[in-house]
């Protein structure tokens, strides 16, 4: 958000110029797929543009947009249950270090988690939200958030132990 401006004063173009990159990073983390992230963000912002006056008057328009991104992604998952989740780097960009390979391996495991579990991890570990904030965001209880995270972490640890 540009400094010194209330959100309702911010035009859609101003919002894009300041926050689009962050929204794309968020969408990439949530979807685990930069191509899908691009499409989801574009679709969400195209819809948001048509009612920007209302959205910009919200207390936290960015939170609203992030929720739209998550909902759009989850609806994509519902529409395409066997969606391919490409995470490998492009062929012309080889991994510079072994550490990146292991991160990619971890990301592949994260990408295979059920979408709700993955969303809980992304919101907590990337967005830094508390359980209460995640629960509000996902419209579920805090215990459900804890349950999703616990299952996700347990899966990831199990996979890592098997891989050692």
């Amino acid at each position: 958000m540009p400094r010194g401006k209330h959100s309702s004063d911010v035009t859609f173009d101003e919002y894009l110029s300041h926050r689009l990159a962050a929204l794309l990073r968020y969408a990439t983390v949530v979807t685990c797929d930069p191509h899908l992230a691009e499409d989801v963000v574009q679709e969400v912002l195209a819809r948001a543009q048509l009612r920007w006056q209302k959205i910009s008057r919200l207390d936290m328009p960015e939170a609203y947009l992030k929720r739209m991104v998550l909902n759009e992604f989850l609806s994509w998952r519902r529409r395409r249950s066997a969606m391919h989740v490409p995470l490998a780097r492009e062929p012309d960009a080889p991994d510079p270090a072994e550490a990146i390979s292991s991160r990619d391996a971890l990301l592949r495991q994260i990408a295979m988690l059920p979408p709700q579990q993955r969303a809980v991890l992304a919101l907590g570990f990337y967005e830094g939200m508390t359980d209460a904030e995640i629960a509000t965001f996902l419209d579920c209880s805090e215990s459900t958030v804890r349950s999703h995270r616990s299952r996700a972490l347990s899966t990831l640890r199990m996979v890592q132990e098997v891989g050692r």
Binding site: H35, E38, R103, D104, I110, A122, F125, Y126, Q160
Partner: peptide, 23 residues
């Protein structure tokens, strides 16, 4: 594992699409 997940997400975020093209 928590640190590894944070690092992995940061790495993934760095692969986000170019804003200009999306805009």
């Amino acid at each position: 594992t928590n640190d590894q997940i944070r690092e992995a997400f940061a790495e993934l975020a760095a692969r986000a699409p170019v804003p200009d093209r999306v805009a």
